[in-house]
Simulated scan of single mutants.
Amino acid sequence: MRRTSMSSVWKRLDDSKYLILLFLPAALYYLIFEYLPMFGVVVAFKDYNVFKGVWASDWVGLKYFSTFIFDNPDFPVLLRNTFLIGLYSLIFGFPAPIILALLLNELRHVVFKRFVQTVSYLPHFISNVVIVSMVVLFLSPDGGLINNILGLFGIEPIYFMSLSSMFRSIYVTSGIWQGIGWGTIIYLAALTSIDPSLYEAAELDGASRFRKMWHVSIPGIVPVIIVLLILNIGGLLGTGFEKVFLLATPMVYDTADIFSTYTYRVGIQQGNFSYATAIGVFNGVVGFVLIVTANFIARRTKETSLW
């Protein structure tokens, strides 16, 4: 019996060898860059010394977690900034591709529809460095597009990049512009899976295009919306380092400094690897709790969840 079951396994593996070969690069990527680095989490619980190595370094337990959360005066500011930037991105950025997908789904002019899709997708393929450079140029007080437009109405040039009150708006707005087209792809794919007979039935009942969108299109993509919302909630405190690092200046740190940029300064610039790792672990644990909580609520309310 054992020999039969083993031969069955080997036969299934042999039949799926090409699928396994296709999956192999993705599996290696996650193994090398996602799972193996988890070994470094132990550094957060040690007073890491480069010359001693990880295992020989002194064990300090939760010392750095306590220092960061309870003794660091910057912790409330970092938590507030990280949470608010993530929350604003979720509130304003998450619905944007849904709305665009619904609008594109209603377009009947195929050429114009494809043109809008192409234009909206393009910023996603531009690196953050170029995106930030474009944003800085657009908002420049010396010949920037936005200030030129404001000048037509007699408004003096505004130094957007040096105003703390403007940083979050700039970050969220540029993020919507950069990601709205790419996010729309998922929702357009979900919309194509809706049974056309539902639209026909709604039309026979006299439903307008808006009513068909509200009662057929949106309910049809609710499961996809919930899954993506759960993933976005899980990343609420995982605001990207690169874009904030490139956009922010010391003048706007009171609203722009987040966990990842602070970790960079502490870990890379100051060489305090244990402290920086502890901050990263704290951020990851909070994200894990958020995604589990969001998944639990979604499963209880809509019976749609990640697991």
Rank of each mutant, 00 (worst) to 15 (best):
M1R: 11
R3T: 14
R3E: 15
S5D: 14
S5A: 15
S5W: 10
S5R: 14
M6S: 13
S8H: 13
W10L: 15
W10K: 15
K11R: 15
K11L: 14
R12C: 00
D14C: 09
D14K: 15
K17G: 07
Y18W: 14
Y18E: 13
L21A: 13
L21C: 08
L22D: 04
A27N: 05
L28E: 08
Y29D: 01
Y30S: 12
I32V: 15
F33T: 05
F33S: 02
L36D: 09
L36C: 10
P37R: 10
V41N: 13
V42E: 05
F45W: 12
V50P: 00
G53M: 08
S57C: 03
L62D: 00
S66W: 13
F68Y: 09
I69H: 05
D71H: 13
N72H: 08
P73I: 12
P73T: 08
F75S: 08
P76E: 08
V77S: 15
L79A: 14
R80Q: 11
R80I: 06
I85Y: 02
I85P: 00
L90I: 02
F92S: 08
P95D: 05
P97G: 02
L102R: 06
N105L: 10
N105K: 09
L107W: 13
V116F: 08
Y121W: 11
Y121M: 05
I126Y: 01
S127E: 09
V132E: 01
V135D: 00
V135E: 01
G144N: 05
G144M: 06
I146S: 06
N147T: 11
N148V: 08
N148S: 15
I149W: 05
G151F: 06
G151L: 04
F153D: 10
G154W: 00
I155W: 07
P157Y: 02
I158E: 02
Y159M: 13
M161C: 07
S164T: 10
F167I: 07
F167V: 07
I170Y: 07
V172N: 00
T173D: 01
G175C: 02
W177D: 02
Q178C: 03
G179K: 03
W182A: 01
W182Y: 15
I185F: 07
Y187M: 07
A190P: 02
L191V: 06
I194K: 01
E200Y: 10
A201F: 03
D205M: 05
D205I: 04
G206E: 08
R209W: 11
R211H: 12
K212L: 01
I218E: 01
P219A: 09
I221D: 01
P223A: 12
P223H: 08
V224Y: 00
V227K: 06
L231D: 03
I233Q: 04
G235S: 10
L236Y: 09
E242T: 08
E242D: 15
V244L: 01
D254N: 13
A256P: 03
A256R: 06
D257H: 02
S260V: 03
Y262A: 04
R265A: 12
V266R: 04
I268L: 14
Q269N: 14
Y275N: 00
T277M: 14
F288Q: 06
I291K: 11
A294G: 03
N295A: 09
N295I: 06
A298E: 05
R299N: 11
T301W: 04
E303V: 02
L306F: 06
W307T: 10
